[in-house]
Amino acid sequence: MKKIFLFFIFTAAGFSAADLSAAGKTPSIFACEPEWAALATEIAGDRAKTYSATAAAQDAHYIQAKPGLMAKIRNSDIVICSGAELETGWLPLILRKAGSSKVQEGGENLIYAADYVETIEKPARIDRSEGDVHPEGNPHIHLNPYNMLKIADILTEKLSAADPGNAEFYSKSNKTFQKNFSAKIKEWEKKAAPLAGKNIITNHKNMSYLFSWLKIKTAGTLEPKPGIPATSKHLAGLKDMAKTEKIYAVVYAPFESPRAAKWLSRQTGIKYLMLPYTVGGNAQSKTLYGLYENSIDILLEAADK
């Protein structure tokens, strides 16, 4: 039995050594969430391999440090994540366990998007009695499309440094992206103008950047505290609030249970909507463009119903 073990160890060590000679291949981008994978695809096209650690149906905060993720991050050249503690339960652990030489906490090749934009909703009191609060502010920054423009620049810069051979290509596709996406933002803003000033109830404050961009007000959340599922007492409070305040809609993300939203809708007649939240969140949100376009469409359609 001892011999079998030693055989495995030495064979494995041999494979590790073989890895050293595998330099110069296509760079790999590890994106913690689908929106960053979509952005990476806009910039890198087919010049890099892009992998998304989570799918739209998954809550990126509650992911476990799964073995598949360790294998992927060990072989990546660039890691791009939301940051502001969104991935704190699993990313530091897989980075530590995967033994990656290229990507590490505090290193050049690990991009925390929240570090490069203004975060909102920074808690005034950092205490867990307030729920799972993030001292650095709301981490779900991707739903403000202006943040995407900024992160596209950062990603282009880091990608070019990691893969100088394709730097020109990355810079060119970033320029195209900046131009097209900026034009789209203006279109979306015009289209979404009727939504300004509306009151919305959201399950968790994970779409605040979308609402603040479109000047929609968040009147309440279905969760009593961040990370604590809706309780009947809290929902009764929201029902009372809906009597005095005009609420436009109740929204939730694809990875959240619609039960509380449906209950409140039945009780009050307020429409409930599932917004795509990220790329792949529904059939119309296959790309970054589709994500914002479709989110606005769904919100606007609620008025016609």
Binding site: G68, A71, K97
Partner: peptide, 15 residues
């Protein structure tokens, strides 16, 4: 010591 091998699935060996 631990080695994580360069495969697309997770293989780690050590001692």
């Amino acid at each position: 010591f631990a080695f994580v091998l360069p495969f697309s699935f997770y293989v780690e060996t050590g001692g």
